[in-house]
Each structure stands twice: as C-alpha cells, then as structure tokens.
Write a protein that binds this DNA or RNA. Structure first.
Lengths: 223, 223
DNA sequence: ACGTAGCCTTACTCCGGAGTAGGTAGCGGA
DNA sequence: TCCGCTACCTACTCCGGAGTAAGGCTACGT
C-alpha cells in the first residue's frame, strides 16, 4: 500500500538539465506547496519532492527557505503587475483605464489562484521581510489609482474637498479588491468580469457622488 | 549588561492566584505575543514569560499551543462582536444602524490593535482550524449587512436587479473594512470616525446608485 | 497535627525539519 | 583515455521549541 510515495512528483525525474530550467521547476513547486500549506507548514523536503529534485539543489540555486519564498513572491508579484499593465492603456479615459485594470486583476487571480494565495494570504501574514514586496506593490497600485481619480477629479472641476480624499479612496479600492479576491476563492462560481464590474461600481459611483458633494452624514435626513 | 532578562514580565510575579485570574493573564500575554511575532514565531516560553507564569501552567489551564491560539481568537472575536452589537440598535433606520456598526468596528480596532492583528492577520493566514472562527464571524457580519441593504432596497421599491447583488455588495463592504483597518495600522494618525464615514460613503452611495439603476458599464458614455 | 488538594516550578525529553558534508555520474575537451 | 567540471544525490547533523515528569510549597479542613 501507499504506492503513493512519489505520486506528486512533477516532471518525470529527468537528468542534467540546465540551471535555468531547474530554477523554474523549483519555483513552480515552491509556489504550489507554499500556497497549499502556508509558509511555515511547507517543508523543503516536500518542495524538492514536488519539483522532482533533491533538497541540496534548492539550496544551491535559490538559497535558504526564506530566500526561496522571497523569490516566489517576487516572481508572482511581477507577473501580476505585468498582467495589469497590459490592461491599462494610457490613451484611454481614466474610467476605462481603471476598469481594464480591475478586469486584468481579477482575470489574473482567476487564472493563478495559487499565485494569488501565496502572494496575498501568505506573504501578508508571514511578516517581516516578506511583506515588503507586497506593501511596495500595493503602494504602487494605490498611487496609480490615485492618479486616475485625481485626473478625473480635476477634469471634472472638483478640488480641495474631494481631492485630499483620493488617496484614501484609492487605498479603500485596493483593499476592497484584495478582499473581494480572497472572498472569491471560496465562491469560485462567479465570473471574473462580474467581480471587476462590481468593484468598479462600488468605487467609481461612490467617487462620483463624493465629487458632486453628495455625501452621507450621520444626520442624513433620508428615509 | 542585559539586566533585560525579565523586563517584559507583566504582573509582578505573585503567588498562588486563583485559576480564573491566571487564565486571563495567560490569554492577555498570548494575544500580545501572537500579535507581535505571529503564530508560528511565537514561542510558548515567551508567552509564559510575559504572563509571569511557568510553561506547564499554560498546558495545565489552556492546553497545547493550538488550543491556546484558538481560545485567543474566540475571546477577541466575541469582544469585537459585542462592541459592534452595542452600536447597532435595531430601532434605528438601516443606514444609521450600518453607520453605528461601522463606527463601533473602527473604534474597537482603534482601541485593540493587538487583538485585531491576532484576529485578522494571524488567524486568516495560519490556516486550518483557526480561520473557521474568522470565517464564521465574517459570514455573520455579511448576513447582517445584507439584511440592512435588503431592507433598504425593498423599502425603496427596488427589486430583482439590485436585490440579488446585495450579498456580494455586503461582502465587498466587509472586505473593504477589513482592508481599511489593516491599512490603518500603518497610518495611525487618522481618527476612527473618519474611517467609518469613508467606508459608509464608499458603500452606501455606491449602493444608492445601484438601486437607482445608475450603473457604470464599459461602454459608459460619460467624459 | 496531619492529610490532601491544588497552585506552581525546575529541568528535562524528543522530534520535525532546516541546512550540509561528501561522494557519484555523465559530458566536454585534450 | 584521462582530466576535470558541473549537475546531482544520499545520508547525515543539529537545534529550536513543543510538550512533560516529577516533585515542592501553601492553605485549608478536620
């Protein structure tokens, strides 16, 4: 029984491959395993097993466990950012840019659930040097969105009041999207585009209202 | 040098206290340490040290590390829910209920950053049995908010279109708040009420627009 | 006075898993 | 054919930290 021993091996144990290929295999395996068990419960033994490679190879090519994880984060973060960049074409109007960005984001998460898990859930919590990469990425996203909102706000003739709030608004949007993505992992039946549209409406409409001075206050008279 | 050894001890090592008190001390210490280092990097030794108690006491009273952590989650989750419940008085209009709930939430996070850290960041990522508690709490929050939105939607005479989206909208709100709270940890200078108001505007206004059929679409003609 | 119950400690065991030492196998060049 | 280089593996070491065995002190009941 338990013929199981090596069922999870990835590539058929092939020999003497160039370093580049091995590194890819290892990183792929690492992302798989980290996303499945979380950083701490993932063992180097399992990663090496899944990669179809022995443990010392990992240390030789990618370094210690922390380094390996960091490299995973880096690679996946770059992938995500590239995916989003492809969506945001600067000749479009701000709202279209935002929408395409959102669409690309949810599309990426849809296609790379494991990557997203590693990137967001794991890196966020396994504190220290790991979250750096994340915070940086998030900061870039916020800045980008802030720029779009600001552009719209000024072209729409709005200032002071609405303007100073754009960054927090952008942060809220980013946060909302991250959470939506996480929530989505447990409700996989919803198509990506629907999520993107929902996020868009959530924020863009609220933002439009803000710009028009249409603000809810605790003493709101309605209903 | 390093007279430091026991500087972090909490209560002045006092003897023969009743079990009830010790349990409180231990849980307090555990929340402190878990929030500071994260579940895995937190050691039982440090917790016992901070609690001013020896390690076997923890095992005698609260059980293994997992049990201890679970108990922390439980206690803090109950605390948060109670704080929110105090805000939401059912004789108010839905929008006021929502606003008081949000205000209570951000107020709680403001007063209990450590608790929130443990509750959200740690429990979310240190997967398995821990996140149960969280998912359950979140689910309750979503249901509650969904009810408020639905009530408003129907009293406002809206149906089908807007109605089926309320749950996802509620999920988005919850997610947005969680992220706002996390983001807030790194921007502590903002008062809680401002965050609550911002969240309220983000969602309520967007929701109002949705109900009025004022929806953004990719082919939106504006600007 | 003496038992006993429960608070509390020191000083261990033990193991999973990170990281490594040292050797083998196949390939390119002379 | 031999050298040596690089890809690669087996088989360890070693340690942090979870969990525990075994007993000491104090208070109270009788």
């Amino acid at each position: 029984m338990s013929v199981d021993g090596d069922r999870r091996r990835g590539p058929e144990r092939s020999r003497r491959l160039p370093r580049e290929v091995r590194e890819r295999q290892i990183l792929d395996a690492a992302v798989r395993v980290f996303s499945e068990h979380g950083y701490h419960y993932a063992s180097m033994d399992e990663i090496s097993d899944v990669a179809g490679v022995s443990k010392p190879m990992i240390y030789a090519y990618l370094g210690a466990k922390e380094d390996l994880f960091t490299e995973c984060i880096r690679r996946e973060a770059i992938g995500l950012m590239e995916a989003i960049s492809k969506g945001v074409r600067s000749e479009l109007t701000p709202d279209m840019q935002l929408w395409h960005g959102l669409d690309a984001f949810f599309g990426y998460v849809d296609d790379h659930r494991e990557s997203w898990l590693v990137l967001h859930r794991q890196a966020t919590s396994a504190g220290g040097p790991f979250s750096r990469q994340l915070l940086e990425m998030r900061a870039r996203a916020i800045t980008l969105i802030d720029a779009l909102l600001t552009k719209t706000a000024s072209s729409e003739g709005m200032d002071s009041q609405a303007r100073k709030g754009t960054e927090a608004h952008a942060a809220a949007l980013v946060g909302a999207c991250e959470s939506l993505a996480d929530w989505w992992l447990d409700h996989p039946d919803i198509p990506a585009r629907v999520l993107a549209t929902r996020a868009m409406n959530l924020v863009w409409m609220g933002f439009g209202d803000l710009m028009e001075g249409n603000v809810w206050t605790p003493t709101h008279p309605e209903s």
